[in-house]
Computed example of a mutant assay.
Amino acid sequence: MGKARSPAPTPRGGQMKKKKIDSKPKCLDDQEIPYRLREIMKSREELKKPKTKKKKKLVNKETPDVPDSNIPVPKFRRRKGEAAASYMRRMERETQHVWYLTKNQLQREPEKEEVVQKKSQKKKEFQQKKMDKIRKQKEEKKAEMLEKELFKDSVKFGDFALQPPTLTAKPKKSKDKAGQRQLLLTSLFSSGSKASTPKTTYSSLARQRIVQEERERVVKAYRDIKKQKQQQKLLTDSKLVMDKLKKPA
């Protein structure tokens, strides 16, 4: 049988202590800044003063330290108070060191170095051309914006125009002036034979009928006259033929 658990001990007074929320400050004269406000102020200060991140130098551990291509040539000179044996040992050490450096030196390839230099030079020229092109485009864009601003009229509220604007400047591409071209119509008008344009008049139905009948009568009379002329011509031709036949050759 398990032992019965004893009830949890209650604090003195038999009441749990409640957390103080929204309680009045301890000192009424000095009120503490709220936590949220402190965080906002801190973030604003950080934005004003951005931290500069230092770039770490990447060190390749796999490749060992390569000695310099230009090996310094040692200059042997006996120091003051140096013994002959120590001087010889020092010279031996330095010569051995130079020999080690020359032995472990990388093989030089001046042809490849020249190619790399040429490539880098071409790359620099290409970058320079690109930058010049971008600069030129920016200048052209700036000039266009200035031109637009110059030709832009600032119209105030309530302003209105009484007449359209008059063009004072002549267009650059136009060679012939107005009225100087030798047109066909201008030659006809200049000769003096000005054709009078008939005015369109709207007449009644009775008037239109009379005009139509008059037109038909005129056309019929013209046809009759033409027919008579043709008949007379035929008669004269036949008479001439008969006269020629009667007369002996």
Rank of each mutant, 00 (worst) to 15 (best):
A85P: 00
K57M: 05
F76E: 05
R135I: 11
E111Y: 08
E62H: 04
L58C: 05
R181L: 15
A161I: 13
L162R: 04
D22W: 06
K142L: 13
D159I: 07
P34L: 00
E45G: 07
P171N: 05
G13L: 01
S203F: 13
R44T: 11
A83H: 02
P25K: 03
M1F: 03
S190G: 00
L188S: 02
Y35P: 08
E62I: 10
S187V: 12
G14P: 06
D237L: 05
R181A: 11
K239M: 14
N60P: 03
P25M: 03
A8P: 13
R44D: 15
V115I: 15
K48I: 06
I71Q: 03
I71E: 04
S193A: 08
K61A: 06
V155N: 02
L28D: 11
D132T: 11
K170V: 03
R223V: 10
G2T: 07
A85Q: 05
K152A: 06
L58W: 06
K124Y: 11
Q163C: 04
T197I: 15
F151N: 08
R207G: 10
K133Y: 10
D153G: 03
K19W: 07
N70C: 08
K24L: 15
L150E: 13
Q137A: 13
E39W: 02
Q212Y: 08
Q212L: 12
E62W: 04
A83C: 09
D65H: 05
C27T: 09
S193W: 04
R217G: 01
A178E: 12
K24Y: 05
E46M: 10
R135D: 14
F126T: 10
K122Q: 15
K24E: 10
E149M: 07
A143V: 04
Q228T: 14
V155S: 08
S43W: 01
K61H: 05
P248H: 07
Q31P: 03
K141I: 13
S187R: 01
R12M: 03
D65N: 10
F157N: 03
K61N: 06
P64L: 09
L205Y: 04
M41Y: 09
M41P: 00
E92V: 07
S238K: 14
E109P: 00
E39P: 00
G13Y: 05
K56A: 13
K138Q: 13
R12T: 04
K227C: 02
A206G: 09
K118M: 15
F151M: 08
I33M: 01
E114K: 14
Q231Y: 03
T95M: 11
K141T: 12
K233R: 12
S86A: 10
P165F: 12
Q231G: 02
K141Y: 05
Y87E: 02
E140D: 14
Q228P: 00
L183R: 00
T168L: 15
I21E: 00
A85G: 01
T197W: 09
I21T: 01
M131G: 02
K227E: 15
K3M: 08
K20Q: 02
S204L: 13
K3H: 10
T166S: 12
L240V: 09
K247E: 09
K170N: 12
